[in-house]
Design a protein around this nucleic acid. Structure first.
Lengths: 367, 367
DNA sequence: TTGAAAGCGTTACCAG
DNA sequence: CTGGTAACGCTTTCAA
């Protein structure tokens, strides 16, 4: 009854079940059905694909046989013959750049399953040859690309080859390709405006790493530019710090930020869950959220609610983004659906981490 | 320059790029290579598959042609001909039962990509016919099953058909099948012992829903049984509450728990990130973590760190679990690798949410 | 409404 | 070492 306490590595040299038989060897095929039902394979195929031109009578008879013999189609063969895979793939880069990435997966997978498509997940960043190989492989009918740069070689490549795809994110030029993207400009603008409306004057942007901006990573560029523009417009000082999307580094960046600007009263974070680093830094300095410093980030509701105090956010509905991306792609593949650019209006969700600034003179000093 | 503020639904009736051509129609095939290189397709195929019996000279020449023509294999056809897909699939149920589920995906996907396998993600719970269809489809060589019940029809089915699979979790009888699982018994036992060692006497278990236990969901059964046994052994009272894995309900359950047992000093949660519901409930009652109540959960480090105070945990290395599951499956498929049962020793990670109980008489009253 | 046969792009066996 | 050729299991004309 008692389970072993330590790792059990039962390398039992048990005779493994027959797995080296050709996986399909003993399966019942469409030919078996045809024979058993006394019709041709073409007829069975028609029935399998719900073609109209089959006698009701025949259909019923064959379907009975199918059921009886427990036949189920060999998707691999279907796909080869039909010239399409009824599959979509999500290219999910390794890089640490992005936000809320995991939820994209489940959303896209759901869209696929809703449309009776299969769903491939390709982690690890692809090289150009790899991408070409993927397109030629016929494994998938279309792909979802994310972490888009303003000038993105993958997008250029796919456009050139005409391989169907959609983007989560967008380039500088998005003619002819469907996409769903966050409105980082408006999101930032609204956030700064809201904070300014509460009385904040020193609002810092905790941005993505400088390389991200320099490499033209969309969210980095758009948010930072919008921050600068908005601050200018409102006559606010521009206070920008950058950090990798790693908790410890976010924390460190926050400390530096506060060293340089001990009087700032709000931080807008481009980081996702690693914004916890901001919380920790503030805690370490004995600063209170939101009384001393308000914090807002681009983040999913579910994650924002884990913070204490709950993290105010420009809501990032990542699951929905993934779902929409999948949906658009599949509609595209099915011939329905025109080019769509979905850029939902940013949703500012105020939670406990956002408040009016405490009277500046009342500020406690850092420990 | 200014982006539109609202959702842009650009249903531009643009002439769509040619996507209805048979996806493979214009691709260069192995036959093209053969012709261009002046060899047979068999030879090209051999070279593609790195077979030894090819003249170095020929090999180089053909490879040059391949490169020149930009040939890339049609995986779909390869798979049909070879009788194997070099793909694995993860069955990812919809149900709300489990913990840390998303990270499994990335881990398993990584294992696949490390082995040059492709990775399918099947969300939504499968029915028996669906599972049978998947096995026959030849889309995947093996599958990873998770959210295992002590007696699991999927496992029984797969065993019977001999289709290769591994489990994240385990059944009552696990002969002949590889698995990786959390040691819930020991995890709970160690946790209770540790808390008791700190001086806690009233330690509650916030368990999974009653149905989960009744249906024989492994983690539910093992943890609860272990809790009861351990408490008995240590002479501690048994205080069990159940809840669905939804924040609001976890919160409510916590409130009820405290209504019935206002003097409890520690809560062990079987819930993942929804354990935030426990935090909120305690907060609402003006109870302090950990001074009034210590909290421990089964949870990933990354998520535990988002809590304030950081959530003590029996660490749930979900990514690693996914990775190992994928690795085992692929090794199995490759013929290497015997049956493995991996049950890592539970890792108790004490964070800020765990402390000695405050002197019981010093306890503040609920607001 | 049905059937025969020609693929789909590879792999793998068998001769040479 | 190389080339023919039969699968792989299904879809899809084309005739009947």
């Amino acid at each position: 009854m008692a389970e072993s306490v330590t790792m059990i590595l039962a390398s039992l040299p048990v005779a493994l079940p027959v797995i080296n038989m050709k996986p399909t060897a003993n399966d019942v095929t469409i030919a078996d059905i045809a024979q058993a039902a006394g019709v041709s394979v073409s007829t069975v195929s028609r029935i399998l694909n719900n073609k109209p031109d089959v006698a009701e009578d025949t259909r019923r008879r064959v379907q009975a046989v199918i059921k009886e013999l427990g036949f189920t189609p060999h998707a691999q063969a279907q796909r080869l013959a039909a010239g399409r895979s009824r599959a979509i793939a999500l290219l999910f880069p390794d890089a640490q750049l992005s936000l809320m990435r995991e939820e994209f997966i489940l959303g896209a997978a759901k869209a696929a399953s809703d449309a009776a498509y299969t769903f491939y997940l390709m982690t690890s960043t692809v090289s150009k040859p790899q991408l070409a190989a993927l397109c030629h492989s016929a494994l998938t009918d279309g792909i979802i690309v994310m972490e888009i740069h303003l000038n993105d070689w993958r997008v250029n490549f796919l456009k050139k080859t005409g391989f169907p795809f959609v983007m989560i994110g967008r380039c500088a030029n998005n003619a002819g390709v469907s996409l769903i993207d966050m409105d980082f400009e408006q999101g930032i603008a609204q956030t700064i405006e809201h904070l300014a409306g509460l009385g904040h004057r020193k609002i810092a942007l905790l941005a993505l790493p400088g390389e991200a901006y320099e490499h033209g990573y969309g969210p980095a560029v758009r948010s930072q530019d919008s921050y600068v523009k908005t601050c200018k417009r409102l006559g606010l000082p521009r206070i920008i710090a950058t950090s990798n999307d790693v908790r410890a580094q976010v924390s460190e960046a926050t400390h530096k930020l506060l060293d340089r600007h001990p009087d700032l009263t709000a931080i807008v974070s481009m980081h996702g869950d690693t914004t916890i680093g901001v919380y920790r830094a503030l805690q370490e300095r004995g600063l209170c959220i939101p009384d001393d410093v308000s914090v807002i980030a681009f983040i999913t509701s579910r994650t924002a609610e884990l913070f204490t105090p709950a993290l105010g956010a420009i809501d990032f509905p990542a699951y929905e983004f993934g779902y929409q991306a999948g949906r658009m792609l599949i509609e595209r593949l099915n011939g329905s659906g025109a080019v769509e650019h979905i850029i939902p209006p940013p949703q500012l969700v105020l939670r406990r981490s956002v408040a009016e600034p405490r009277n500046a003179s009342g500020r406690r000093n850092p420990a």
